[in-house]
C-alpha cells in the first residue's frame, strides 16, 4: 500500500508550491481573503495528505469506503460542488448589483446633462 517515493515527493513539492502560490495571491491582493480562506485550507490539506498518506486511508475507513481513492474523490467532488454553488450565488448577486449601478449611473448622467443644458441656456 506504499506510494512510490518519487510520486510522494512530487506531491509534497506540488502541494507546497500551491500553498505558496495562494499565499502570494492574497499578499498581492489578487484574491479576496474571503475566498482565499477555502483555498488556503484546501492547499493545507493537500500538504497533509501528501506528507501523511495514512490520513486518506483513515478518512476512507471512517466513511466506510473500501477504496481510499474513492473516498478522496467523494470528498473532493463534494467540496467542488459546494464551491461552484457558492460562486453561482456570488455571480448572481454581482449581476444584480451591476445592473442597479448601471441604471443609476445612466439616470444620473442624464440628469447632469439636463442641468448643464439648463444652466447654459441661462448664461446666454
Amino acid at each position: 500500500m506504499n506510494m512510490s517515493s518519487t510520486l510522494r515527493t512530487t506531491l509534497i513539492i506540488g502541494s507546497i508550491l500551491f500553498f505558496v502560490f495562494i499565499i502570494n495571491m492574497v499578499r498581492t491582493k489578487k484574491l479576496e481573503l474571503k475566498y482565499a480562506l477555502i483555498w488556503i485550507l484546501t492547499s493545507l490539506s493537500f500538504i497533509i495528505m501528501s506528507i501523511f498518506p495514512e490520513t486518506v486511508f483513515m478518512v476512507a475507513r471512517l466513511l466506510e469506503v473500501e477504496v481510499a481513492a474513492n473516498a478522496l474523490f467523494l470528498c473532493i467532488i463534494f467540496l467542488l460542488l459546494l464551491m461552484v454553488f457558492a460562486l453561482t450565488v456570488a455571480v448572481s448577486r454581482h449581476a444584480d448589483r451591476i445592473k442597479k449601478l448601471v441604471q443609476e449611473l445612466a439616470l444620473l448622467k442624464a440628469e447632469l446633462e439636463d442641468k448643464d443644458k439648463a444652466s447654459e441656456n441661462k448664461d446666454h
Binding site: K99, V102, Q103, L105, A106, K109, A110, D114
Partner: peptide
C-alpha cells in the same frame, strides 16, 4: 430625452 446605459442590460 434619452437615458443611455453605459453597458447593455
Amino acid at each position: 430625452k434619452v437615458v443611455s446605459l453605459p453597458v447593455n442590460l
